[in-house]
Amino acid sequence: MTNPLVLLPGLLCDNAVWIEQRRVFGKERPCVVPDYDLRSSITSMAEQVLAVVPDVRFSLAGHSMGGRVALEVIRIAPERVERLALLDTGYQSIAEGEAGQKEREERGNLLRVAQEKGMWAMGESWAPGMVHPEAVDSRVFAEILSMIERSSPERFEAQISALLNRPDASTQLRQINVPTMVICGRQDAWSPLARHEVMSEAIPGACLRVIEDSGHMTTMEQPVAVSAALGEWLDWTVEGA
């Protein structure tokens, strides 16, 4: 049997983020979308992934916060990962000084909205910046809001804690020795293309794919283009496979 494809969702996301990819690739291989439950650190999320995935080598793709979890998975258990895809994500820890304080305040403000007014209200203020400007008020945007509403303030608080205390993977990038693809939406305002260019240059042999007409939520905004890129990635020959 073909080894599993493990698909890691981002902040407040669930398997809806990967619905098209599961449809396309699930015909050929098991597709696993782990649930982080209420884990409140990137490391504990990575440990959860390793605990729920069958004890075989697997292809690993992470979107947004899931990309950070993917980097932690391959740090903890490099022998388990046969290839890596990082989508609309980052690798640095929280900035020092004013920039870091601003991030803490903005995330704290969103959490208060979620606690006081509910997840949908929080999503309405947060999610517009996550998509291409033309996607706001679209069917995809409504699906994103519904996904956010399915979560809870408790989960949001746990995942915010994980992100505010995220590890810095800067030195790790050059140590990654599996076939790696870096994917980013051209109009991603949350995790900009310039960051992904740095990542793809730092990871030995990595390949960068830019998804046109897409913001941060590439897998939902442009699912066909993302699946095409991941299909190419899955077709790469892996040593020892």
Rank of each mutant, 00 (worst) to 15 (best):
A189H: 07
A142T: 08
A206N: 05
A142Q: 15
H132Q: 13
D168A: 08
L208A: 08
W190M: 11
L164Y: 03
I148M: 15
S170G: 06
A202C: 08
R139V: 09
I176W: 01
L164W: 01
M147R: 13
L173R: 06
V131C: 09
T180V: 11
H196I: 11
P153G: 10
P179T: 04
V198R: 08
S191K: 04
S170L: 02
F141W: 11
P167A: 05
A142P: 10
I203H: 04
A169K: 05
I211M: 10
N165Q: 10
P133I: 07
F156G: 09
I203V: 14
P179K: 04
N177C: 11
W190A: 14
E154F: 02
T219R: 03
S151V: 00
N177K: 13
S138R: 09
A169H: 15
P204F: 03
H196G: 01
C207A: 05
S200H: 06
M199G: 00
L208D: 04
S200F: 01
G215Q: 14
H132M: 07
P192G: 01
T171S: 14
S200T: 10
Q175L: 04
I211Y: 07
I211D: 04
V178P: 00
S214I: 01
E212Q: 11
A158V: 08
R186W: 06
L164E: 14
A162L: 08
E149R: 12
P179A: 11
R195M: 03
T219P: 05
L208M: 09
I203D: 07
V178T: 04
V210E: 10
S146P: 00
R186Q: 15
M181S: 15
H132N: 15
E134H: 12
G205H: 08
E212G: 04
A162N: 01
P192D: 04
E197L: 04
F156V: 06
H216G: 02
H216F: 02
P179F: 03
V210D: 02
P153N: 05
V178H: 00
S170Y: 01
T218E: 10
I183L: 12
I176K: 07
A194R: 10
A142N: 15
R186S: 04
Q175P: 00
Q175M: 02
V198S: 01
L163N: 10
P179W: 00
M199I: 09
A158H: 09
A169S: 13
D188C: 06
C207V: 14
F156K: 05
Q187M: 08
D168V: 13
V182H: 07
L163S: 12
M181R: 13
L193R: 11
H216D: 07
P179L: 10
A189F: 00
V198T: 14
A135W: 03
V178L: 06
E143A: 13
R186E: 14
I183Y: 00
L164M: 12
R155A: 09
I160M: 15
H132V: 10
Q159L: 06
S200Q: 11
N165S: 11
P192V: 08
Q172K: 00
L145N: 15
L193F: 02
A142M: 15
R186K: 14
I176N: 13
S151K: 02
A135S: 06
A142E: 15
M199A: 00
C184K: 09
H216Y: 05
A189P: 00
W190C: 11
Q187V: 01
E143S: 15
